[in-house]
Write a protein that binds this DNA or RNA. Structure first.
Lengths: 202, 202
DNA sequence: TTCGTCATGTAATGGGTTACATGATTAC
DNA sequence: GTAATCATGTAACCCATTACATGACGAA
């Protein structure tokens, strides 16, 4: 997951670790940024695997001077990234993975995008069904707050399903127009949010 | 976190591990259920610490027969739970903790409840501010999908803030009526959801 | 010249997962 | 009697975190 995000970001532009981490913050969404104690070892590992390089002549120049490494993808790294981008299976629709996959949709083929969006929606639809049955589920009446939590959770899921449906619709239009290549689909997306930024909350 | 949830559930009723895990699913919300490979060792540890017991004469009766252990809180366990229920600090308002804390609001004093709800709201309000600045943030224009992801995330946060504001309002009414003891606050909560279940999604 | 932030790293630790193994109970 | 599900447990591992340590660079 982390590896994928790193490869994806480096494909857009070469970066050094510190900067990478800041970008990661947007991409990983709710997981926010990764800690440096986690990132740097990972970068070292990816380098050992030959997926990324740093052309720091810097490490040769002076004495053992420590300066910022700018990493970029190797040919092998690009290949690996492409494989992962093509993966539209169940792994792509769980909570953690989906956000990251979505963040790199620009680099993803239109058909895979659609597969992921639909998979994700179905996953949520399942969860919705589950939640419904457990909530109104015969006996074992939950207490007030647990119930309210559940209710709010369910509503969130429903909201996300609607969002996905909109995305799927616009994606399909895009695909219909110019089939199969990565395409601007979302260009025509109209933000349905009817005043999301500052509404009522007395 | 897990420990707290376990103590909280056992305070409501004695349970054995397997059943506990199922209940945990509702309580932990998005973290869903914990794996058994995680739960059982933790139960053993809690027992070692003297916070829970299982009065299985069963372990003596036959030969080394393995049967279900029903766990319940010890006096020490109850004490520990009370301490944790009284904690309304920052730890209670992060993503993971909040849901669990909320799930046990029935066992939480009204003032602590309010502290947690407000803390949580402020936390989200902060995040909102952050997101806004990074989104419309000068240069480094994000790509289409990243932007859409961000937009949706922001909207979700705003929604949750509104939810919290409603909860806070009803809590305050409750507190005003009969100050300081654990009280039914939410009894008067009216579900503002104006048709959440199946709305527009063309 | 000192303070803040950029920048990189390591070691200890933690909290969970998966895979595996086993046994009891219920329903058919 | 056999399959499904309930129920408990262990060992190996994974991935990330925290705490710590170091150093470069720009601005006051």
């Amino acid at each position: 997951m982390l590896d994928f995000a790193v490869l994806g970001l480096l494909h857009e532009a070469p970066l050094h670790g510190y900067e990478l981490n800041k970008r990661l913050k947007s991409v990983l969404g709710r997981m926010s940024a990764i800690s440096y104690g986690s990132l740097y070892p990972r970068l070292a590992a990816l380098q050992d695997e030959g997926l990324i390089t740093t052309d720091s002549a810097a490490s040769e120049s002076g004495a053992g001077r420590r300066k910022k490494h700018v990493y970029k993808l190797t040919a092998e790294g690009k290949e690996r990234l492409q494989e992962q981008l093509a993966e539209g299976g169940p792994a792509a629709w769980d909570d953690d993975a989906f956000g990251v996959r979505f963040a790199f949709f620009s680099q993803t083929d239109a058909d895979v995008r659609l597969r992921i969006l639909e998979g994700r929606r179905n996953r949520l639809e399942e969860r919705k069904a589950n939640a419904r049955t457990t909530m109104s589920g015969t006996r074992e009446r939950l207490d007030r707050y647990t119930l309210e939590l559940q209710r709010h959770g369910l509503e969130s899921v429903e909201r996300e399903v609607r969002w996905l449906n909109e995305l799927i619709a616009t994606e399909r239009d895009g695909v219909a127009a110019r089939p199969h290549r990565a395409s601007p689909a979302l260009a025509t997306f109209t933000p349905v949010t009817q005043s999301a930024t500052e509404g009522d909350h007395r």
